[in-house]
């Protein structure tokens, strides 16, 4: 398998605070990769830096063999990589259909857009039923579906999901992870930041464990599940 995304010594700073300290990782085509670790470990900062929402302080990011380190966010969706941000952040004052249409904003090919509508509405029939409703009136689970559906409208090769299960009912969380597996079967590569470690490692192929802005462990999901590094990353200490 070839690397779809590869990252070398990526660092992110917020003023004097170093949120990510020179990490390396790669994501191969067709994988589900889980980013694990406690709050503030640098997982979200990493995803945001990949899509250009926060500046990369140093390091390089390569996507499909192309250096995208300093690309602004608006160039990444057309290139095939997008982020569904933490907290869903659907456009509450836009209808469901308008949210989805915005997801395809950067796509010029009419047939591709048509196919994206069909794909998203068949994945999430509830979004079709509620297409004229304001997104702000949807339930949390439906908003999460909309956030993922909106990201899918651009037909991404690599989809970054930041805390997709956050704040959802346990029953809905199961659906979110089923969806992640299903998307991989449809050929999407996924990187998922998750608090729900057990479920993340269940669907993921590999994982990276973050602590204080560094990657402290990595490996196949099945091995990570029992690793001490993972436990200490959440409990603190060595």
């Amino acid at each position: 398998m070839t690397s779809l995304l590869s990252v070398q010594s990526l660092a992110v700073r917020y003023g004097p605070i170093e949120a990510v300290r020179g990490i390396d990782f790669d994501i191969k085509e067709g994988e589900i990769v889980a980013f694990l670790g406690a709050n503030g470990a640098g997982k979200s900062s990493t995803l945001n830096a990949l899509v250009g929402l926060v500046p990369v302080a140093s390091g390089t990011v390569t996507f499909e063999g192309q250096a995208i380190t300093d690309w602004p966010p608006e160039m990444l969706a057309p290139a095939g990589m997008t982020l569904s941000p933490e907290g869903r952040r659907v456009f509450g004052a836009l209808s469901v259909a308008e949210n989805l249409a915005m997801g395809a904003y950067a796509i010029k090919n009419k047939n591709a857009i048509e196919a994206a509508w069909e794909r998203v509405y068949s994945l999430f029939p509830i979004l079709y039923e509620r297409r004229d409703q304001y997104a702000g009136t949807l339930s949390g689970g439906q908003q999460q579906m909309l956030a993922v559906g909106r990201a899918l409208m651009s037909g991404p090769k690599l989809l970054l999901l930041d805390e997709p299960s956050l704040g959802l009912a346990p029953k809905i969380i199961g659906q979110v992870f089923d969806l992640i597996s299903l998307l991989r079967d449809q050929g999407v590569t996924l990187a998922v930041v998750e608090q729900n470690v057990a479920m993340a490692l269940e669907v993921a192929d590999r994982g990276y464990v973050f602590a204080s802005g560094e990657i402290v462990a990595s490996g196949p999901a099945s091995e990570l599940a029992h690793s001490d590094a993972l436990k200490s990353a959440y409990l603190g200490g060595e």
């Binding site: 966010p73 608006e74 990444l76 456009f91 308008e98 915005m102 904003y105 651009s154």
Partner: peptide, 23 residues
């Protein structure tokens, strides 16, 4: 499309940029 994009950008500029909407 531009009008809807403006509404989207007004609500959440960063997420709008993620959709490929140019600032």
């Amino acid at each position: 499309k531009t009008g809807i994009a403006m509404r989207a950008a007004a609500e959440d500029f960063n997420v709008a940029r993620l959709m490929g909407i140019r600032a």
